[in-house]
């Protein structure tokens, strides 16, 4: 029976990892194209949750979860156009500082608009409850969420690897000056990538709002985990982030099984071990502009 319990935790960890992936992938994408460590990424996650809860009161959960990421992504355009763009070629510390400041501004703005008290949000009754397969129990909602993540992941992979848009972005990440020399303006691609990353974070927030506390500081809670995932996976690596997200989820699940009190620390231990063995992360690629 013990082994069944363990497998159940591993599978649950994979599902949780899928959700971390939504946040971490956007973070990694924005870092890859612009070289800016976006500390405001959690704020977009929080905003996604708040907007979806607010909309959900009028249009229902499903529609709100679909529309909220789009609305927040539009804010992402302004974020890239007026703020982030100025820091692509600056000292990384400046981008770090400005996004850190933005995260604080965003948190306070949420406090001012929606108040400090958490926003109540519930799952529709139809989405609640377990799915039992043999000895295993899953949350119906999380399985659904995993499906959404898989579709989104597939879409992004196709976009980056099978379209001309993706070719320019990938070339821009590796050789921005070469791309410019070929007469391609990278700016719109950058904007689109940031929009995509911000939208992914907001989608994460919208999907998680019914099963977590929706409060102004929720962005800060998720950001640490997203960073750990990106660092373990290796900056700039699509599959690295996927692998790391699932790994972090599984390590947390397994550590809850064996040493529950240490479960929060487990992902940091994992990060430590990975960095000791592979300082670039699991599948991190060398990127010219960061190798100076």
């Amino acid at each position: 029976m013990q082994i069944v319990f363990l497998i159940e935790q591993v599978v649950n960890g994979l599902v949780l990892g899928g959700y971390y992936l939504l946040i971490a992938l956007g973070l990694s994408l924005i870092f890859s194209v612009g070289g800016v460590v976006n500390l405001a990424h959690g704020a977009f996650y929080a905003l996604g949750a708040y907007v979806s809860v607010q909309l959900g009161r009028h249009v229902g959960f499903g529609a709100a979860a679909a529309v909220s990421p789009v609305l927040v992504a539009l804010i992402g355009i302004a974020f890239e156009r007026f703020l982030l763009r100025r820091f692509y070629r600056e000292d990384p510390i400046l981008g770090l500082l400005v996004t850190f400041g933005l995260a604080m501004v965003a948190e306070q703005a949420i406090r001012m608009i929606w108040g400090a008290a958490p926003l109540p949000a519930s799952l529709p009754a139809a989405l609640r409850g377990p799915v039992i397969v043999g000895d295993f129990l899953f949350s119906r909602y999380r399985l659904l969420m995993l499906g959404v993540v898989a579709v989104v992941l597939g879409g992004i992979w196709l976009l980056l690897n099978r379209t001309s848009f993706g070719r320019v972005v990938r070339a821009g990440i590796q050789q921005p000056d070469m791309v410019a020399a070929l007469g391609i303006r990278l700016q719109p691609y950058m904007t689109a990538c940031v929009m995509l990353g911000v939208g992914l974070a907001a989608l994460g927030g919208a999907l998680f709002a019914p099963i977590t506390t929706v409060h102004p500081a929720m962005g800060a809670e998720i950001l640490t985990i997203a960073f750990v995932v990106v660092i373990i996976g290796g900056l700039g690596s699509f599959w690295g982030v996927v692998l790391a997200a699932l790994l972090v989820g599984v390590v947390r699940g397994v550590s809850v099984h064996f040493a529950p009190a240490a479960s929060e620390a487990s992902m940091y231990v994992l990060m430590f071990v990975v960095l000791m063995i592979r300082p670039r992360g699991l599948l991190g690629e060398p990127i010219e502009k960061f190798e100076r």
């Binding site: 319990f5 649950n12 949780l16 977590t212 506390t213 529950p260 479960s263 929060e264």
Partner: peptide, 10 residues
């Protein structure tokens, strides 16, 4: 801890 799924399974 913000995700309790593993504890709920336990």
């Amino acid at each position: 801890v913000t995700d309790f799924s593993a504890f709920i399974l336990k």
